[in-house]
Nucleic acid binder design. Structure first.
Length: 574
RNA sequence: CGGGGAGUAGCGCAGUUUGGUAGCGCAUCUGGUUUGGGACCAGAGGGUCGCAGGUUCAAAUCCUGUCUCCCCGACCA
């Protein structure tokens, strides 16, 4: 492509609303333009990158026996009522009504549609297993889109769905996809980790996230420095330190703690450690009924663990200060478990602790020597705290946990029969008996992967594309388009390289060299050929490698062969 | 949804406190000098100051309403 024919407009300054470097570079490099919050146009350069990623996906999925389809974006309410997710999915589901008062939603994911498809076609165990995938634009009405393509409302996703006769076969499908994902992300040139994760409102029991490591990532990951354990902090278990104190139970006593509202204040005033205090939190449980949660003063509540413990679909909300006052007759800071008439969930770390200090449910007062079972009833002990870096690995019990930040680019779920049951998707087994189909679902954020790649591969001058997903292979800076010899030679390279199957962008603008070099660095194409009159007269052409900054001078008649060889060496097929 | 901030030329911003009819840098256009890492000189074009209403001789500026966007939180693949 010649620059003058293309639609590429770079910006010197970053847009005011961009925070992440990857977002700034996408806009500055002319890759994307924003239409509204979380909604973007992918300009040609971005589209080419997306197509590269999609090509890798298609290759890896097709070769593993997956079938590509394209399902509708507009989906009828009735189907979502069947799965219960018309309500359950919440405001993320964009709903709309047509002139006949029929309701639809824009597809945020396709479990319902694909299960409907399958239940109509699959009749026998002979028709299974199947794996169906698509690459499509999804819409989720995010409350607050941010970070460019990282959390958009509209985004491109590759979603795959597996259908099997039983659990064993379904798990085989699951691990096949798991391996496929590994290969895909390796091929895109990204540094990633596979972590244990929460299934969210998709449902299912076995699930892994593929996280691209980046300081700007929205997710926190804990990774063992000794074994292969890696988990999203949302689900990372805490190692239960069972330390019976052996101390006798003391008599409960109330004492005044005026103006001591936080655990930190209280610990300071009483001259004890925060971890030796007990804090009481209140959330809305299933059906919105209040639930009390007790943790060590130093610990943070993990809402995902709590969600899974109490069995709600979405992470619970905290009670407001006023709701807490109404429930306990004290504001947060002076609340405790004694006398409460709501379920009390207690973190396992408190199991053997005696003589607790807790709020007295009277503003400005606390109780000491409070003991579980004697002074209040525990509904359930569970792992409810946020595990933190530096703690012992829950798997090998030897290593220490390190913290990373990650961008979730892929997620695999084993679903079981959640959707086949809800939508009645069955097959006839050998004995002619009707059985529920076992399912799995697998997603890759394609547009997010593109931005994650930039977040991980850029320098102060711009993007540095991994070769497999770069929009073009070669960027030719034709320094003086009016020089006939030079432009003829450029055309020659352009044709030759393209006939080899390499993709070439020629900057044939009437611009100063400095501008062309800056733009080339910004756009980030792996190899740059500099066509300058001086060098050419001296019998040399400069080839620059974007990633290393290395510059190689070759003879004009060796340019094409050198480049072809270079791409072969780095493993690019063309 | 709670808290904070912002809407002035294509982009980035100043001007608003103290009302007097809009400015800077980049970009764009013309001419010239330049030409291997975001050139220089001279000139030009471009804005109903988010929208609606009000106060006033006079509103980007003050008042009321409204819309939109951004950030933090909550929430969330």
């Amino acid at each position: 492509m010649k620059w003058n024919q293309a639609h590429i407009f770079t910006l010197r300054e970053a847009p005011a609303d961009a925070e992440l470097e990857s977002h700034k570079l996408l806009v500055r490099g002319g890759y994307i333009r924003k239409l509204g919050p979380g909604v973007f146009t992918y300009q040609n350069l971005a589209l080419r990158v997306l197509r590269k990623i999609e090509r890798i996906l298609r290759e890896e999925f097709d070769r593993r026996g997956c079938t590509e389809v394209l399902m509708p974006m507009v989906q009828p309410k009735e189907l979502w009522d069947e799965s219960g997710r018309w309500q359950e999915y919440g405001d993320l589901l964009l709903k709309m009504e047509n002139r006949n008062k029929q309701w639809f939603c824009l597809g945020p994911t396709h479990e319902e549609v694909v299960t409907d498809l399958i239940r109509k076609d699959i009749k026998s165990y002979r028709d299974l297993p199947k794996n169906i995938y698509q690459i499509q634009t999804k819409y989720r009405d995010e409350i607050r889109p941010r970070y460019g393509l990282m959390r958009g409302r509209e985004f491109i996703m590759k979603d795959a769905y597996s259908f099997d006769v039983d659990r064993e076969s379904a798990l085989k499908s699951y691990w096949l996809m798991y391996e496929a994902y590994k290969v895909v992300f390796k091929r895109t040139g990204l540094d990633f980790r596979i972590v244990e994760a929460d299934a969210g409102n998709i449902g299912g029991s076995l699930t892994h996230e593929f996280q691209v490591l980046a300081a700007a990532g929205e997710d926190k990951l804990l990774v063992c420095d000794n074994c292969e354990f890696a988990a999203n902090i949302e689900v990372a278990p805490s190692v239960f330190e069972d330390r019976p104190t052996g101390e006798p139970l003391e008599k409960i006593e109330e004492f005044a703690t005026p103006d001591l509202k936080t655990i930190a204040d209280l610990a300071k005033s009483l001259k004890i450690k925060e971890r030796d205090l007990v804090k009481t939190l209140f959330v809305k449980g299933v059906d919105g009924k209040p639930v009390a949660v007790l943790l060590r003063g130093s610990d943070e509540l993990n809402l995902v663990k709590l969600k899974n413990t109490i069995g709600s679909v979405n992470p619970p909300e905290f009670l407001t200060d006023e709701e807490v006052k109404k429930l306990t007759s004290a504001y947060p800071g002076s609340c405790g478990p004694v006398g409460l008439k709501v379920p009390i969930y207690v973190d396992q770390y408190l199991k053997n602790k005696v003589n607790w200090i807790v709020g007295a449910n009277r503003d400005g007062f606390h109780l000491k020597n409070v003991n579980q079972d004697r002074d209040f009833k525990v509904t359930l002990y569970a792992d409810l705290r946020m595990t933190t870096k530096g703690e012992t690995c829950p798997k090998c019990k030897k290593g220490k946990l390190k913290e990373f930040r990650g961008i979730e680019v892929g997620h695999v779920f084993y679903l079981g029969t959640k959707y086949s049951k809800a939508l009645n998707a069955t097959y006839l087994d050998h004995g002619g008996k009707s059985q529920l189909i076992e399912m799995g679902c697998y997603g890759i954020g394609v547009s997010r992967t593109m931005q994650a790649a930039i977040e991980q591969n850029h320098d102060e001058n711009g993007i540095v594309w991994p070769v497999e997903i770069a929009p073009y292979h070669i960027h030719i800076c034709l320094l003086d388009p009016k020089d006939k010899t030079l432009s003829d030679k450029t055309d020659e390279y352009y044709m030759e390289l393209q006939s080899l199957g390499l993709e070439v962008l020629v900057d044939d603008r009437e611009e100063r060299p400095g501008i062309k070099f800056k733009d080339a660095d910004l756009i980030g194409i792996p190899l740059r050929i500099v066509m300058g009159a001086k060098g050419f007269a001296a019998g040399e052409v400069e080839i620059a490698i974007r990633k290393t900054g290395e510059k190689i001078k070759v003879k004009p008649d060796q340019t094409v062969s050198y480049i072809a060889e270079w791409f072969k060496t780095v493993g690019v097929k063309f």
